[in-house]
């Protein structure tokens, strides 16, 4: 990396400084910087899942059919109370073992199936999960957890849309369908956005759990790079630098939340344009 930097730039630094630049731009560190993609992908994908589950949950909660209503309420009240870290640990494992269970039933012999203590019963039923599979499942779990919160927010927002708006719309001759989609749903977002932005913030924080599922994200690499190294051939010899590396993560998450706040303010302004009813 040092050789691609211009001479005049490097001349600003002492020899130690140049060594530090070389250290911070070596392959290990570049991999660390690049692993931000897992955090960002996880945040966006989980948010999409959360919105999806949230919409479904809210629709169930206000359904006229009691069973749907019951399922919706069950989902939002049960899932909300379970720590997300447990969901992340439990859900992918449950899916993996569930899939393996069905494969094992068809592929393993009866003798293997009855054996106790080994899972899966035979190697043919072994499901190898890649990093991307785990990432996807982590997103699904996060989406499930935060979808429950989103369902409550959306449910509340649907009820917050002033009745007068909808009555006026029908009076103007819009059909029931149009009233629902163009007025109720459209205005719902204005009331839901502050709550959803809160959920987004929680979700960003929860992305730091990815390393639990062997996803080599920024937290994983920070731990690895911060670990002490006393073996010269494995790179720079240094004592435990975990504090410094975790501090970088700290700053990263603060910046990410600050940027998100700005983004949501923009969205809020956009969604509430032309709506004098909404108090800003």
């Amino acid at each position: 990396m040092l050789d691609i930097l211009p001479e005049w730039f490097l001349s600003w630094f002492s020899e130690d400084g140049q060594e530090m630049i070389a250290y911070l731009t070596n392959g290990k560190h570049l991999t660390w910087y690049a692993s931000v993609r897992y955090t960002l992908i996880a945040a966006v994908l989980s948010a999409l899942f959360a919105i999806g589950f949230g919409l479904i949950g809210a629709a169930l909660k206000q359904s006229g059919f009691f069973l749907f209503r019951w399922i919706g309420n069950f989902y939002t009240s049960i899932v909300r109370g379970i720590p997300d870290i447990l969901f992340i640990l439990f859900f992918p494992l449950a899916i993996e073992q569930g899939v393996e269970y069905f494969i094992a039933k068809s592929k393993c012999t009866a003798e293997q199936l009855s054996a106790i203590g080994t899972w899966p019963p035979c190697q043919e039923a072994q499901w190898f999960l890649t990093t991307n599979d785990y990432l996807f499942m982590a997103c699904l779990s996060l989406g499930l957890v935060y979808g429950a919160f989103a369902a409550n927010v959306i449910y509340g927002a649907l009820h917050a849309v002033p009745k007068g708006q909808l009555e006026a719309a029908s009076a103007y001759g819009f059909s029931q369908k149009q009233v629902f989609w163009k007025f109720k749903i459209r205005q719902m977002w204005v009331y839901a956005l502050p709550g959803l932005s809160n959920i987004w913030m929680l979700l960003i924080k929860a992305t730091s759990f990815l390393s639990l599922l062997q996803v080599t994200d920024i937290v994983y690499w920070a731990g690895l790079l911060g670990a002490a190294n006393y073996f010269p051939r494995a790179g720079m010899v240094h004592p435990n630098w975990n504090f410094q590396y975790y501090f970088v993560l700290f700053v990263f998450y603060i910046i990410l939340t600050m940027l998100s706040e700005r983004f949501f303010n923009m969205l809020q302004n956009k969604a509430s344009r032309g709506m004098s009813v909404v108090e800003q």
Binding site: N26, G27, K28, L30, T31, W32, L224, A227, F231, R233, A234, G235
Partner: peptide, 16 residues
């Protein structure tokens, strides 16, 4: 990947 010289991560972040 943390027991040099048996196995460790080199500067490129790869197992060596």
């Amino acid at each position: 990947g943390a027991y040099a010289p048996w196995n460790f991560l080199d500067d490129d972040g790869k197992l060596a």
